[in-house]
Design a protein around this nucleic acid. Structure first.
Lengths: 227, 227
DNA sequence: ACTAAAAACTAACCAATAGTAAGTTTTATG
DNA sequence: CATAAAACTTACTATTGGTTAGTTTTTAGT
């Protein structure tokens, strides 16, 4: 009883290796030989499982987006109020295991593939749409529909912007700083009296603690590694 | 009396050709042969003027950033108040000749070079710093120092974010939409009573009209082409 | 104007790269 | 156990970035 076919295992191994190669060398200097070397197989095996480099890169792109969305889902399990779910989205997007210089640089490298790769484009669109709808679902509790739409789009763009900067600049961006920047936007765009300020603060604190356990745990990392 | 050396003319021609190649094919499919073909010279000439591909890409990157900053400078000439200068920065970053799908896609392609190319990194840092200081200069008129810093950074990141999205998504982002999104952020982050709302509105309108003339004119485009 | 040096350009080459094709081994299945 | 399918290997090709050595053109000093 094998739960996964050899093919899907190999594809997972190879896209992980390719991701590692992009992290180490950047997209332009990532070759199929290097990917093979990292995975411990020959270039031929890489091309047997991915018919061309573009297909491999699409898998890498999909993989890194999946890791992110799974972090959100994982934190959702513990979030009980709109405040907490809103913060779950934000914290998941900037948790240290995912939001760090290496990964952000790789992401910046990878998105250059998007404009000329339909598969990547679909992934990217789905990804944007998912985060937008996640945000909308919570923001509706705080704002009228039309306003919520604007804020959802604004926060989505802001998250992308912070990721790009973190990938472009040589100085690392601390997760804390990134989250605080989003917090600043929220404090300006959502109703923010003394009561809600406290609720936001508590929600952020709670989700941050949960994230340490839920996302930082070896179990979650292993799960993320598998696929 | 030749104002420019052959070298600088060729380098300009070649980096324009390289930019065109990146627009057409994406960074990964941009080869020195194609760049040469677009410029009407052999690959050898390209490598004679740029010692390697990285150097050429750095020039392309620098060139596209220069175009942007010159647009800001051009609009500054007509901006007379902090409101107008603030809007000059915003409008310049989203003017149709610069902010369009082709250019945004090329930009997204090019930034993948940044993490592993020191020269590009310097350009990028200088660019971020310039726009931040431009924004700060005006925001100080509306906000206390510490608040102005946060807003300046936020708007800078938002501009990057909008550019990335415009490059990633297949549906074009209208300049008007982009500017309105920034306007939304401004309306939430700057003091915004009836009086200032009108002042912003007038400033935006005035600068938009000037941009049509100053940035849309053949003279400006030719000037931009030269270097 | 003449010449020497510097710059612009060309062409032949090389190693690395993405991708193909044809074959061999391993695994799954009736 | 036989057969087909999937996994893997190897050898090959065309394209690519980059080098080198040489030729032509431009520049500058006398």
């Amino acid at each position: 009883m094998r739960s996964k076919s050899i093919r899907s295992i190999r594809r997972a191994e190879l896209s992980r290796a390719a991701f590692e190669a992009v992290v180490q060398f950047g997209l332009r200097r990532t070759t199929l030989d290097k990917v093979g070397a990292i995975a411990g197989v020959s270039k031929g095996v890489v091309l047997h499982h991915f018919k061309e480099k573009s297909a491999l890169l699409e898998a890498v792109f999909r993989r890194s987006n999946t890791l992110l969305s799974e972090s959100v889902i994982e934190l959702y399990r513990y979030a009980e109020t709109p405040y907490e779910r809103l913060w779950a989205i934000i914290i998941a997007n900037f948790f240290e295991t995912i939001f760090n210089r290496r990964v952000c640089q790789a992401w910046v490298s990878l998105i250059s593939e998007v404009p000329h790769n339909e598969g990547c484009q679909r992934v990217q669109i789905a990804n944007n749409e998912r985060i937008r709808s996640n945000l909308m679902h919570e923001l509706r509790h705080f704002l009228p529909e039309s306003e919520a739409q604007k804020v959802a789009r604004h926060l989505g763009v802001q998250i992308d912007g912070i990721w790009v900067r973190a990938g472009l600049l040589p100085t690392p961006v601390e997760p804390d700083v990134a989250v605080s920047e989003i917090e600043f936007a929220i404090s300006k765009m959502l109703p923010f009296d003394e009561i809600s300020a406290v609720k936001h603060k508590n929600a952020r604190k709670k989700i941050e603690q949960i994230a340490q356990i839920a996302l930082g745990s070896k179990a979650f990392k292993d799960k993320a590694m598998q696929e």
